[in-house]
Design a protein around this nucleic acid. Structure first.
Lengths: 152, 152
DNA sequence: TAAATGTCGACTTTATAAGTAGGGAATTGA
DNA sequence: TCAATTCCCTACTTATAAAGTCGACATTTA
């Protein structure tokens, strides 16, 4: 399960991305719309700013706007900001690889091999789908046929 | 990241499954082979027993053996025993569905829709690959072509 | 210049991970 | 039979992270 923090971050980001070009949204407004604890949301927005995703304006008519276009921001990128590495095993993370303490041989590790399959599958989705994709509102049909249709 | 507990469970299970038919392995022996804290492993083996995956014999020539064949035990099943639901959101879990407290409409939730894609992809792997598959030792080639070759 | 906003650091509370500890119950080989 | 070996069970500890809460400060603008 992903954390509340990450879920709030996505709600906030989708809201800011959906706002009219140039219009800043305040943390108070975002918190109100989604019933997110205000002070908690402030921390989250700050994290998104430090990550170079949002931009902020202070003072009376302040608020948050997108720093980068929504179609350059993937779900994977945002998730990593709040959850750390997405890999199920440290030895499978590309961005922050660590070997498993107790592992004799990575090449022969059955656990690593199987989880690599699962992680590849989910990473392919998370690192390709963007905030803009999500807002495009195309329904998702869970029949297992999508992957082949899209790949073909 | 998966917990140490789950990782130990997989190591133990793969070891018991790889043992000669009918030969019981003691918790001490399994712990020694993989340098797993013995008392901790005992709890894990007990969980696997309660889940109907392992069988145990007590006393002098006791130990653990498989209760069900290794090709009927998926990685997803084992993972759920130790990690709970695998879904990234409660509203995406089939086996233990809960609605998200703060969600207005599941059908229109962009977060749910995107994570459904990711979860479907990884679930398809975890719920199909078995302990027996893992022991078959077929190398895994991460080029993104496997899915199509296997599907075709 | 006061009100509205974002920024920052410290604190609290609760839950979970990762073990540790100590004994009790069953089996079996001598 | 009895002692060694094994599994079985409960309780405890320690460290870390999640999910906030709180109070003060900094910046902008009407």
């Amino acid at each position: 399960m992903i954390s509340n923090k990450a879920k709030y971050a996505f709600r906030a980001l989708l809201t800011v991305a959906a706002a009219p070009e140039g219009e800043a949204l305040t943390s108070t407004e975002i918190a109100r719309r989604h019933a997110i604890p205000h002070k908690f949301l402030e921390q989250i927005l700050l994290d998104l700013k430090k990550a170079g995703i949002l931009e902020s304006r202070r003072g009376k008519s302040g608020g948050y706007i997108m720093l980068r276009p929504a179609d350059t921001i993937t779900f994977g990128e945002v998730l990593r900001i709040f959850e750390g590495p997405l890999a199920p095993l440290p030895c499978l993370s590309r961005q922050s690889y660590r070997r498993c303490e107790d592992c004799a041989s990575e090449a022969n590790c059955e656990i690593r091999r199987e989880f690599a399959r699962a992680y590849d599958a989910s990473r392919q989705v998370l690192d390709s789908r963007t905030i803009a994709d999500a807002l495009a509102n195309v329904p998702y049909d869970d029949t297992g046929e999508d992957q082949q249709r899209l790949a073909g």
